[in-house]
C-alpha cells in the first residue's frame, strides 16, 4: 500500500500504468469491493460503473489538486466529499437523461460513488499533495484500473452465469452476443453474490500468482546481471595477482629467462602496489 501511494512523479506514463497494473485498486489495493461485487454481474454494467467512477476520479482529483493550497487542513475531508458529491450528482443526472437503462441497473451504487474509498483515498493521498497534471493522470490510471477490473469480472460472471457476452442497451440500441444454447446451461450462481466472491477470489489469486512469478523472475534476472557485471569487470588487484601467478608458473616450468623473470617481478610489484591502494 505505501509503495502504491508514493509514486515516482518523473514518469507520467508510469503514473497511469501504476493505477492500471501495479496498484490496481481492485486486485492489488482491494478497495471499492462493494460496488465491484454488486455491479460486475455483466460486462456492460461494469463498463458503465467504471466509466462513471473514472469521470468522477479525474474531475475530483483535478479540483482537489487545484484547491489543495486553498482548502484548510481541518476541513479537507468535508471539502473533498463536497467536491466528489457534486461530480457524482452530475454524472447521475447525465446518466438518467441519456442512458436510463444503465442508470436503473447501477441503482444505489451510483450515488454511493461519493463514499467510494478509491476516490476519497486518491484525493487524500495523491491529489492533495501533487500537481494538477499528475493528479489527473493518477485519477485516469486508477479509474482505468477500476474499469478494467470490473469489465474482466463482469465478462467472466456474465459468460459463466448467463451464457452471453457483453449484452446491454444504449438508448434504443441493443447489442451483445448470445452464445447459442449457452444460456440454458449457464451457472446462475456466478451472477449471484456467491459467484461474485468466488470469481473475485480466483481472479485475484491468479493475478497474485502471475505478479509473484514476474517479481521472482525480475529478481533472478537482476541477480544474474549483477553477477555477470562483477565477472566481466574483475578488480585490479585480482588481475595483478593473476599476472603474477602466470609469470611464476612460467618460471617454475623451467622456461626461465630474463623476460619471464622480469615479467613476474613486474607483476608482483604491480600487485603489491595496487594491493596497497586497497
Amino acid at each position: 500500500m505505501s509503495k502504491a501511494l508514493t509514486l515516482d512523479p518523473k514518469g507520467k506514463g508510469r503514473i497511469v500504468a501504476n493505477g492500471i497494473f501495479a496498484s490496481n485498486p481492485v486486485f492489488r489495493l482491494v478497495l471499492g469491493m462493494c460496488p465491484t461485487l454488486a455491479i460486475s454481474t455483466s460486462a456492460f454494467n461494469g463498463l458503465g460503473m467504471g466509466i462513471a467512477a473514472t469521470v468522477v476520479l479525474v474531475c475530483s482529483n483535478l479540483l482537489v489538486s487545484l484547491l489543495r493550497k486553498v482548502i484548510p487542513d481541518r476541513v479537507r475531508i468535508p471539502a473533498y466529499v463536497l467536491i466528489i458529491a457534486t461530480f457524482v450528482t452530475m454524472v447521475e443526472m447525465l446518466l438518467r437523461k441519456f442512458v436510463p437503462a444503465l442508470y436503473d441497473a447501477l441503482g444505489i451504487y451510483l450515488p454511493l460513488i461519493v463514499v467510494n474509498c478509491i476516490i476519497l483515498a486518491r484525493a487524500e493521498a495523491f491529489a492533495s499533495q501533487n500537481g494538477v497534471g499528475d493528479s489527473v493522470l493518477d485519477g485516469l490510471g486508477m479509474g482505468l484500473g477500476f474499469t478494467l477490473a470490473l469489465v474482466l469480472l463482469g465478462f467472466i460472471r456474465e459468460f459463466l452465469g448467463a451464457g452471453t457476452v457483453f449484452v446491454g442497451e444504449l438508448g434504443d440500441a441493443s447489442f451483445g452476443l448470445v452464445l447459442g444454447d449457452m444460456p440454458d446451461y449457464a451457472m446462475s450462481v456466478f451472477v449471484l453474490p456467491a459467484g461474485g466472491f468466488l470469481t473475485l477470489g480466483l481472479v485475484m489469486a491468479a493475478i497474485n500468482a502471475i505478479s509473484a512469478k514476474a517479481e521472482k523472475d525480475r529478481q533472478s534476472k537482476c541477480a544474474a546481471a549483477a553477477e555477470e557485471t562483477f565477472a566481466e569487470q574483475p578488480t585490479p588487484a585480482t588481475a595483478g595477482a593473476n599476472d603474477g601467478a602466470e609469470a611464476a608458473a612460467a618460471i617454475s616450468e623451467g622456461e626461465g629467462n630474463a623476460d619471464g623473470a622480469d615479467k613476474g617481478a613486474e607483476a608482483t610489484k604491480a600487485r603489491d602496489a595496487e594491493g596497497g591502494d586497497e
Binding site: T41, S42, N45, P100, D104, A105, G107, E158, G161, A162, G163, T164, V167, G168, P183, A186, S188, V191
Partner: peptide
Amino acid sequence: SHSETASM
C-alpha cells in the same frame, strides 16, 4: 424502471 439482473 427496474434494477433486476439482466440475465435473470
